[in-house]
């Protein structure tokens, strides 16, 4: 039973983790994209449509990623090229995404989707205890974990990652050092779109293989919260996503076991837990400040 519960938690946490990892990279470069929900839902509808039409879920995942990227380019055009306000543009992107996905998906409502099946890694998946949990999952799970590690390595162990972080920390001096601020940010925003699109694809290909309007149901916002929760550190994002998943699944189990607490209180637990943990970690003020991209949300236009 424990294994089954952990598998459920992993499925619930994966889309949050994917979207949050992407947003983390964007925010580390100094771009706050509040349009995660919009990019995610576009990824979801594109993935469903392509997987359903072609019968191939892998193509669907690809389409989801592409949809996320193209939507993030729209955001980039506005905020990076035209230097519009990032908060407002992100919100507008979400409105646009929810509307556009509903329009595109109209003919796919009520159709059973194509599921991207789990891929068991031979030998390893037969390990006792952790075998199925770590090596018998769907491709999105592996991807989310690999991306978490990859992004950590990229940000803190590679030169390009250092450049990205310095662009986010102080775009003026990064520019003075000869870094191409806008190009770095475009790439970061596109990576964010790619991940959000994949998160959406996970929803329609693994989590609940079907398409219905607004099915992301606020997961993009939770991903955004996770980034801040993690104080912009990839490792903590993994922990945060799984913590959030565990609390939401745990409250369902608590109910099924007949614990007589108001269900609203149980539903509020993940949010309260997030606040509590956040307060605990942010008491270490210096560490938090060190990790916060100082240029977050500020437009950059090179003076010449």
């Amino acid at each position: 039973m424990l294994e089954a519960i952990l598998l459920t938690i992993a499925t619930a946490a994966t889309p949050l983790l994917l979207a949050a990892i992407g947003e983390l990279v964007a925010e580390r470069s100094g771009v706050l994209n509040l349009g995660v929900e919009g990019m995610m839902i576009m990824g979801a509808v594109a993935a469903f449509a392509v997987a359903y039409t072609t019968g191939n879920p892998w193509l669907g995942a690809l389409a989801g990623a592409l949809a996320g990227v193209s939507f993030s380019l729209l955001f980039g055009l506005l905020t990076l090229t035209l230097a519009t306000n990032q908060v407002a543009s992100g919100l507008a992107l979400t409105i646009l995404g929810l509307g556009a996905s509903g329009m595109l998906g109209e003919s796919f409502v009520g159709l059973p989707g194509v599921k991207l099946e789990a891929v068991s890694i031979p030998v390893l998946s037969d390990l006792p205890l952790v075998g199925r949990l770590l090596f018998g999952q769907d491709p999105f799970f592996y991807l989310s974990i690999l991306l978490g590690i990859g992004v950590w390595w990229f940000l803190f162990r590679s030169r390009a990652g250092l450049e990205l972080r310095s662009v986010g920390a102080n775009h003026a001096s990064a520019h003075a050092l000869g870094l191409k601020v806008i190009r770095v940010r475009y790439l970061a925003v596109m990576f964010g779109g790619l991940c959000a699109g994949l998160a959406g694809a996970q929803l329609t290909l693994v989590y609940t293989p079907q398409w219905v309007e607004n099915m992301s149901a606020g997961r993009g916002w939770i991903a955004l919260a996770l980034v801040v929760f993690a104080s912009w550190r990839p490792g903590r994002i993994v922990v945060g996503a799984y913590l959030f998943g565990a609390v939401s699944i745990g409250q369902l189990h608590a109910q099924a076991l007949g614990i007589g607490l108001p269900s609203q209180l149980l539903s509020a637990l993940p949010y309260l837990a997030t606040i509590a943990v956040l307060v605990l970690i942010s008491r270490d003020r210096r560490a938090t400040l060190m990790n916060t991209p100082a240029s977050l949300g500020q437009p950059f236009v090179p003076d010449r």
């Binding site: 099915m215 997961r219 369902l252 189990h253 099924a256 076991l257």
Partner: peptide, 25 residues
């Protein structure tokens, strides 16, 4: 009968989580 209240009419993800939780029990 095991009852789980999800506090929503419509959230495929949450409904699927609840379904899994019930089956696991």
């Amino acid at each position: 009968v095991k009852v789980v209240w999800v506090n929503t009419w419509f959230d495929p993800g949450k409904e699927s989580d609840a379904a899994k939780a019930l089956l696991d029990q």
